[in-house]
C-alpha cells in the first residue's frame, strides 16, 4: 500500500539535517576555529581547503550539509509555529511557507556552489 503522507520524506530530511548538523558542524568548529588556532593541529592551508571544496565531491558534501540543515530548520520551525502559536487553521500555509524557504535557500546554495570557482 502506498501511503500518501509526505511526512516520511520531510521527517527524513529533518532528521538527516539534525544528524549532519550535530555531527559535522561542532567537529568543524573544533578543528578549524579551536584546535588549529591554538596550534594543536596543523592548520590546513587556504589553498588546500579551497581545492577540497572545489572538488565535485567537496561541493556535493557542502550542498548536502546546507540543504539538509535548511530542511531541518523548516520542519522544526513549522511545528514550533504550528504547535507553539496554535495556528492549526493555518497549517497548510505554514508548511508551504517554511518548506518554500528551505527550497529557495537550497536553490541559492546550489547556485553558489556551481558558480564559485
Amino acid at each position: 500500500m502506498v501511503r500518501r503522507s509526505r511526512e516520511p520524506v520531510l521527517w527524513a530530511m529533518f532528521s538527516g539535517g539534525g544528524m549532519i548538523a550535530a555531527l559535522l558542524l561542532p567537529a568543524t568548529v573544533a578543528v578549524l576555529w579551536i584546535a588549529a588556532p591554538l596550534g594543536w593541529v596543523e592548520a590546513p592551508s587556504y589553498e588546500g581547503l579551497r581545492l577540497l571544496f572545489l572538488h565535485p565531491i567537496g561541493r556535493l558534501s557542502l550542498f548536502a550539509v546546507a540543504t539538509l540543515s535548511f530542511f531541518h530548520w523548516a520542519h522544526r520551525f513549522r511545528y514550533t509555529v504550528y504547535d507553539g502559536l496554535q495556528l492549526y487553521h493555518l497549517s497548510q500555509l505554514i508548511a508551504i511557507l517554511t518548506y518554500s524557504i528551505a527550497v529557495a535557500l537550497t536553490v541559492i546554495a546550489g547556485f553558489v556552489l556551481v558558480t564559485t570557482g
Binding site: V2, R3, E7, P8, V9, W11, A12, S15
Partner: peptide, 12 residues
C-alpha cells in the same frame, strides 16, 4: 516507528 515508516516509504 518514524524511522520504520520512512524506510517503508523509500522502499515503496
Amino acid at each position: 516507528y518514524k524511522l520504520d515508516a520512512t524506510v517503508d516509504w523509500f522502499q515503496s
